[in-house]
Simulated scan of single mutants.
Amino acid sequence: MEMLERRDTSGIVHLHMNAPKRFNALTDDMLAALQAQIDTLKTDRSAKVVILSGAGKAFCAGHDLKEMQAGRAQDDKGRAYFKDLFTRCAKVMTGLQRLPQPVIAQVHGIATAAGCQMVASCDMAIAAEDTKFGVNGVNIGLFCSTPMVALSRNIPRKQAFEMLTTGKFISAKQAEDYGLINRSVPAGDLEDETLKLAETVASKLGAAVAIGKEAFYEQMLLPLDQAYDYTGEVMVENMLWRDTDEGITAFLEKRPPDWA
């Protein structure tokens, strides 16, 4: 049984975390498996969309606390191990965002701490209505500082700060209202609704979606005028493509595009 299962169907890559007894915790092995897939997907031209899901009762419960405590058994009390762990985790989170393919989190059960960070790091997210979200490390004396990075870039600062300082869980409805997820659906519809979204995105010109995803995140880091200058150049490049010419021509001629 693989810890991270991959299944490809019609341009959609399904990555399924398969460690249900550990609530799909981000162990060293799980982080390595996720990073390996991210490295592969960077250059996978057949992949248009990625769905990330989890087996069992939870999407992801964050870091494995038993593994973290074992990391303390070093001369430096674990300083080097912890630094490496959080660096590896950050590489996975930023790697999801930097993939050319949109990544959709299919969330159920709970998404806590680094698991909530993973949801926030995905480009889109659909959750079952009974899902709970939290950055609850403060409850055990560990402030969720790295999950805070992704969380605070998804939801308003006061809601993020309340979650971080109280350790309280929020419902899927609250997560939707805050902007952490796109929408919540009945649990029985979760897989179908996520797939429907993935299929819609996969039907578009993959190269256009890829260049658009990169530009989406890059322009957010720039002042307004620079953002327009940058995205204007992106659109110029996009307009010069053969497939974009074909897409516009097909639209004007009221026919499906013949993309290469």
Rank of each mutant, 00 (worst) to 15 (best):
Gly167Pro: 03
Ala172Glu: 07
Ile110Trp: 12
Glu2Asp: 15
Phe59Gly: 02
Glu129His: 08
Ile140Cys: 01
Lys21Gln: 14
Glu199Thr: 10
His16Trp: 08
Met93Cys: 08
Asp64Phe: 11
Ser121Trp: 07
Gln174Ser: 13
Leu180Trp: 05
Ser53Val: 09
Val236Tyr: 13
Thr146Ser: 08
Ser145Cys: 09
Thr94Phe: 15
Thr249Ile: 13
Thr43Tyr: 08
Lys77Ile: 06
Ala25Met: 10
His14Met: 11
Arg242Gly: 09
Tyr228His: 11
Lys204Asp: 12
Phe161Gln: 07
Leu164Asp: 02
Leu221Ile: 11
Asn18Met: 09
Glu5Tyr: 07
Gly188Thr: 06
Asp130Arg: 08
Asp29Tyr: 14
Asn182Arg: 08
Ala250Lys: 00
Pro223Gln: 10
Lys21Ala: 15
Ile248Ala: 02
Ile51Asn: 02
Asp225Thr: 11
His14Asn: 07
Gly11Asn: 00
Ser53Ile: 04
Phe23Asp: 05
Ala80Leu: 09
Gln101Trp: 08
Ser203Met: 04
Cys89His: 14
Asp225Trp: 13
Glu2Val: 06
Thr200Ile: 09
Pro147Gln: 03
Leu15Ile: 06
Gly11Gln: 01
Arg22Trp: 15
Gly179Phe: 00
Val49Glu: 01
Val236Pro: 00
Ala187Leu: 13
Thr194Ser: 02
Lys77Gly: 11
Lys91Arg: 13
Leu52His: 01
Glu2Pro: 15
Ala55His: 10
Arg157Ser: 14
Ala80Trp: 01
Met118Ile: 11
Val149Asp: 03
Ala120Pro: 05
Met148Gln: 11
Gln97Met: 15
Ser152Ile: 05
Ala208Tyr: 14
Tyr178Asp: 09
Leu151Ser: 00
Leu240Lys: 12
Glu162Ser: 10
Val13Gly: 00
Glu5Asn: 12
Leu31Val: 07
His108Thr: 06
Ala227Asn: 06
Asp258Gly: 13
Asp64Ser: 08
Leu15Tyr: 01
Glu193Trp: 01
Phe251Gln: 05
Lys83Asp: 15
Ala202Pro: 06
Leu190Tyr: 06
Ala58Leu: 04
Cys60Gly: 00
Val50Asp: 00
Ser171Phe: 15
Asp245Phe: 15
Lys196Glu: 12
Asp8Phe: 15
Phe161Thr: 04
Ala125Tyr: 03
Trp241Thr: 10
Gln219Glu: 14
Leu142Cys: 07
Pro256Gly: 01
Arg88Gln: 09
Gly212Thr: 04
Asp84Asn: 12
Arg183Gly: 04
Ser10Gly: 01
Ile211Lys: 08
Ala113Val: 04
Leu224Thr: 11
Phe251Lys: 07
Thr194Trp: 01
His63Ala: 14
Ile211Tyr: 06
Lys132Gln: 14
Val50Asn: 05
Lys66Phe: 15
Val138His: 04
